[in-house]
Amino acid sequence: MTIKSRLLPTLDIDATEVYAHLFDALGDPTRLAVLQHLASGEHRVRDLVEHIGLAQSTVSRHLSFLLECRLVAVRPEGRSSWYALTEPASTAALINAAQSLLRATGTHAQLHTHLSHPHTAGDERTEIR
């Protein structure tokens, strides 16, 4: 049976690229590690370097990508810059949906619980040394 081409939806190329960029951000293990740490509260680059164990330039590069995707925001304070999730609840909902999809397809994996239940605005800043 042949599907008539006029019945197929027209794809929005720009929207497709935006979604692909978002999934690129979530598709890298280092960026997922950064998001997991930020879900517990604001962090500085040096905190993330210490926790993830990668070079400062590598962590900064991944933060830049996440900033570009608007998944994280930066807040300058003196000589430090504090990074935080821009939409903790929406990020948690996406991670929870991914976890449900993985379970439905037979894969049981769970990211750090902070990412599925993030630190929310108004909570005290988490400074990890």
Results as ranks from 00 to 15, higher is better:
L54Q: 12
Y19N: 15
I13S: 12
T10V: 12
R46E: 13
A104D: 12
G106M: 03
L8W: 11
A93V: 05
A73L: 14
A92C: 01
V18P: 06
S40Q: 04
V72G: 03
E42F: 00
Y83E: 00
I52S: 07
S90F: 07
C69H: 12
S90Q: 14
L8T: 13
A92G: 06
K4N: 09
S64L: 14
L102T: 01
G41K: 01
I95E: 03
G122Y: 05
T105A: 02
H43C: 06
D12I: 10
Y19D: 15
E127H: 14
E42L: 02
P29C: 03
A121K: 08
A33I: 02
E42N: 06
L35P: 01
Q99R: 09
F23I: 11
A98N: 03
E77N: 13
H62E: 03
S60N: 14
L102R: 03
Q56M: 12
L38Q: 01
E68C: 12
T86C: 10
H108E: 13
E17G: 07
L71Y: 08
E87R: 10
L101M: 08
P29Y: 03
S60I: 07
R31S: 01
Q110F: 14
T16W: 11
L94R: 13
Y83P: 00
M1P: 11
D123G: 05
I52Q: 06
I13E: 15
E68Q: 15
A73R: 15
L115N: 04
L22Q: 12
L22I: 14
P29H: 04
E68M: 13
T91Y: 03
E127F: 13
R75D: 06
D47G: 04
T105P: 00
T86M: 09
D47W: 00
M1I: 08
G41N: 03
T30M: 03
P29W: 02
T107S: 12
V59D: 04
R75W: 04
D24H: 11
F65Y: 14
H43E: 03
C69T: 15
S5W: 08
L111F: 06
P88A: 10
R61E: 10
L48V: 04
A92Y: 04
T126A: 09
G122M: 05
A109Q: 12
R61I: 06
V34N: 01
E50R: 14
V74K: 07
S116W: 04
W82P: 02
I52M: 07
P9Y: 09
S57M: 07
Y83F: 11
T105Y: 01
T10K: 15
H62N: 07
E77V: 08
M1T: 09
R6W: 13
K4F: 12
H21D: 14
A89G: 10
L85M: 03
F65D: 10
S60F: 06
I3W: 07
P29R: 06
G106W: 00
H37K: 05
T120R: 11
L101C: 04
V72Y: 01
H119P: 03
R70G: 08
H37A: 04
E50D: 15
V34P: 00
D28P: 02
L71E: 06
A39Q: 00
H112Y: 10
L66I: 04
D28Q: 04
D28L: 05
G53R: 06
R61A: 12
A104W: 07
Q99E: 10
E68T: 13
N96A: 11
G106F: 00
M1C: 08
P9A: 07
P76G: 04
R75N: 08
L35H: 06
A84G: 09
R44Y: 03
Q36W: 00
C69P: 08
T91G: 07
R79H: 09
